[in-house]
Design a protein around this nucleic acid. Sequence first.
DNA 1: TGGCAGGGGTTGA
DNA 2: TCAACCCCTGCC
Length: 290
Amino acid sequence: MVSEYTQLTQKVTDYDLAATLSSGQAFCWDLTGPNEWRGWIAGNPVSVVRGSDCFRLTGRKLTRDVAARYFQWDTDLAALIKTFPQDEPMRQALAYCPGLRLLRQDPWETTANFICSAMKQIVQIKQINRALRQRFGKEVEPGQWSFPDWRTLAAASEADLRECKLGFRAKHLFHAAWQLTAGEVSLEAVESLPTPEARKELMKLRGVGEKVASCILLFAYGRQDVFPVDVWVRRAIHQLYFPKRRTFTEKQARIFVAKYFGPYGGYAQQYLFHWIRTVGALPPSPRLRG
DNA sequence: TGGCAGGGGTTGA
DNA sequence: TCAACCCCTGCC
């Protein structure tokens, strides 16, 4: 068993691991010690320790190629950031968290996570992810359950899924798992499709609309131009770029971001989003207002 | 302590 | 275009 585990050290620069793992793109990571995170890559448990200039990884069946693909540490961040718009919000977002990165995650787990994300906060999505593992996953280590594949969920029932705190999302996830099992939609085919067709293919899945499809394309398929627009982003774009407009619809936001943020708009979005969410750069929502 | 409003979305009418 | 869908959180 011990021989299944490998240890790797990887030199990394400009990589804020904590921000990256907690910025709402992945839901399977927990901070377990000073600079130490435990989570999952390609169906296997992994721990990552952030050293001063390196990552020290320990994982079951972990190879450097698999880790490099997941963490995307070869990305030339400086070159990519140069393509961002040179405006004040973007400058502040970049200054706030200079090493934020995009991961490249497993398409199925990402799809399932974001189907479950509708009207849920990050903490709750993590709870659902954990519950699905414990209820339907394989125990690959004592207390460590892998994320269940779609066949397993399709073989369960909607009621079983509801017990994992999914609420009305249980119907969506169950149906999507069933569609994949039946071959109605292929996540593998999405890989080679141009982005508009890839989006259409993903949106055939129940529970996957415009926003969820964008998240899957950005976080699992490496389509870094795709800019998911949710209520937070819409509100942010409204306040930061069009403060004089009385109303600003999601459609208006989508049209604006597609043109304005360039070939790595998805990356830019992650910076803006993380900054807004953690600093509270926007006025609070009406409910939270004093 | 309990009631209540509202939330990172999608669906179907 | 809009209500309905679950359920958790935080406020009062």
